[in-house]
C-alpha cells in the first residue's frame, strides 16, 4: 500500500452497514449495490453470500466489512445456506430476530447456483435473494456467464475474426425466478438507489421467497471509466437493455419507463470497452442493430415505452 499523507477533514465515522476499508475496485457497482441493500434492510438481518468479488473484497481475515451477521460458504450454495439459516431461526423460535438475505453474483446465481436457488424458491423459504448482476465472472478475470449480454466481449468470449463476443442472449433470470410462483420478483439498478431501497423494504415485508436482481456496473470488466458507473447504469435502463420492473404474484406491477424519444443503444455501448469491437468496422453496425432489436423487444415485452 502506498503511503499517502491523509489530509482534509475526518470527523464522524462512516456509518454504512457495509463498512469502508473493503477492497473493491475503484467505482465498483457491486459494492455500492450491497451498501444500498444493507442500508435499506437495517441491522436485524442475517446475510449469506456466494464466493465472488463481494465476498473477497469484504472478508479478508481478520477483517470484515460486514456490520451485520454474515456467512460465506461456497460458490453455488448461498441460497441453500440461507435456507438452513432460515430453517434454524424457525426451529429455534428466533424468526422475529432477523430477516434472511442471500446474495450472489450473476454466475453464483444464474449459473452454478441456479439449482440451489431453485430449491430455495420452490420450498418457500422466507428469504430475500439478491443477485448483484455485473454480467460476467469478474472475480476470476471477466469470463462470460449466463447473464453476460449478447455480443459482449469477455475473456472467454473474445472478439475475433470469427467472433463478435458472447454468442448467447442474456438468460431471463427474473423470469426463471418468477416461474417458481414466488410472490415477489424485481429488478433494479445502482443508478436508482431510492428504488433499491423501496424494493428491499417492500420485499422484506412479504413472507416467502423473493428475488431481486440489481444491475451493477463493473468498471474493470466493462472497461468503463470508474466515475461513469452511474451514467452507464442509467443508459442501460434508458435504452431498454436492462428492464427495471416489479412483479408481484407473477404479474408485472410497475416498470421504469424509457425516455422518449428512445435513447439508441449506441449511447450505452460506446462508453464501454466491452462493446468497443462493434464500432471498429461497418459490419459491427449490423451487430449493434441486433442489440437494438433486443432493446426494442424488451420495451415491448415489459411495456417500457
Amino acid at each position: 500500500m502506498t503511503t499517502t499523507t491523509v489530509t482534509g477533514p475526518k470527523e464522524q465515522a462512516c456509518d454504512t452497514l457495509l463498512a469502508a476499508g473493503h477492497t473493491a475496485c475503484t467505482g465498483c457497482g457491486e459494492a455500492l449495490a450491497a451498501k444500498l441493500v444493507l442500508g435499506a434492510a437495517g441491522r436485524d438481518i442475517i446475510v449469506t453470500d456466494a464466493t465472488g468479488c463481494l465476498e473477497v473484497f469484504t472478508t479478508r481475515f481478520p477483517q470484515s466489512s460486514w456490520e451485520v451477521p454474515f456467512i460465506h460458504s461456497l460458490f453455488e450454495n448461498s441460497a441453500a445456506v440461507a435456507s438452513g439459516v432460515e430453517a434454524a431461526l424457525k426451529a429455534l423460535g428466533r424468526q422475529n430476530e432477523a430477516k434472511v438475505i442471500a446474495q450472489g453474483g450473476d454466475g453464483g446465481t444464474a449459473d452454478i447456483g441456479l439449482q440451489a436457488l431453485s430449491g430455495m424458491l420452490e420450498r418457500g423459504h422466507n428469504v430475500l435473494y439478491v443477485c448483484y448482476d455485473n454480467e460476467a465472472y469478474m472475480n476470476t478475470g471477466v469470463q462470460r456467464s449466463g447473464l453476460t449480454p449478447f455480443d459482449c466481449m469477455t475473456t472467454t468470449s473474445p472478439y475475433g475474426e470469427y467472433s463478435w463476443g458472447n454468442k448467447h442472449n442474456k438468460k431471463d433470470m427474473p423470469g426463471i425466478a418468477a416461474a417458481h410462483g414466488i410472490p415477489y420478483v424485481a429488478t433494479a439498478s445502482v443508478a436508482f438507489p431510492k428504488d433499491i431501497e423501496n424494493k428491499v423494504k417492500k420485499a422484506l415485508t412479504i413472507p416467502g421467497p423473493k428475488y431481486l436482481q440489481i444491475h451493477s456496473p463493473c468498471p474493470l470488466g466493462w472497461r468503463s471509466n470508474p466515475h461513469l458507473t452511474i451514467k452507464v447504469a442509467k443508459l442501460a435502463i434508458e435504452t431498454g437493455l436492462y428492464p427495471v420492473f416489479e412483479m408481484e404474484n407473477g404479474k408485472i406491477t410497475k416498470v421504469r419507463k424509457v425516455k422518449t424519444p428512445k435513447t439508441p443503444v449506441e449511447e450505452y455501448l460506446k462508453i464501454q470497452g466491452r462493446f468497443a469491437h462493434l464500432f471498429k468496422s461497418p459490419k459491427g453496425q449490423e451487430e449493434i442493430q441486433k442489440i437494438q432489436e433486443i432493446a426494442d423487444r424488451n420495451i415491448e415485452k415489459y411495456g417500457l415505452a
Binding site: T4, A19, G21, H22, R60, F61, Q63, S64
Partner: peptide
C-alpha cells in the same frame, strides 16, 4: 478474531484498512 474456529471475523473491522492510499 478466531482463526482456530474457522476464521471468524469481527464486524466492521475492515475500517482498519485505509484504502485512501489507492487514490490517483
Amino acid at each position: 478474531m478466531r482463526l482456530d474456529l474457522g476464521a471468524i471475523a469481527k464486524a466492521g473491522t475492515s475500517k482498519a484498512n485505509q484504502t485512501g492510499g489507492w487514490r490517483n
